[in-house]
Each structure stands twice: as C-alpha cells, then as structure tokens.
C-alpha cells in the first residue's frame, strides 16, 4: 500500500504544478487579450533583404 502514498503525493505535486502554472499565466496577463495572439502568430519573419545583410 505504500506505493499508493507515493502515487498520491506525486499526483498532488503534478496537480499543484499545474495550478501554479495557471496562476502565473493569469498574472502575466495571458487572459486579458485572447484574440490578438492568434493573428500575430501568423505573421512570417521576412527573410532579410540583401540591403540589410550588406548593412550588417
């Protein structure tokens, strides 16, 4: 039965880990704007043009 205790503790730790991840995500403002990121992620980073490479 001692294996159950270990499982219990592990599962609680995992669950609390997710809880804290959730609290962090709220704090960092991820729930304030849930539309714009879905558009933003579709923009490609344009490959550098020759001019810029020359400048660098």
């Amino acid at each position: 039965m001692s294996v159950l205790i270990i499982l219990l503790i592990v599962s609680l730790i995992v669950a609390l880990g997710f809880l804290f991840a959730f609290l962090w995500s709220v704090r960092s403002g991820q729930y304030e704007d849930d539309y714009t990121p879905s558009v933003r992620m579709l923009f490609d980073n344009k490959p550098k043009t020759n001019k810029e490479i020359d400048n660098n």
Partner: peptide, 23 residues
C-alpha cells in the same frame, strides 16, 4: 475595464478542485 483577474482566478481554482476531487 478589464476582464477581472479575480474572476479568472476563481474559475481556475474551482476547475482545478473540481477535477482533482473527482479523481
């Protein structure tokens, strides 16, 4: 006015507890 963070916390907590207690 912003979507209140408090409400998000409340619902997150309730959801978390709901799932784990069921488990």
């Amino acid at each position: 006015k912003k979507l209140s963070r408090r409400l998000v916390y409340q619902i997150g907590l309730a959801g978390f507890a709901f799932g784990n207690i069921m488990l």
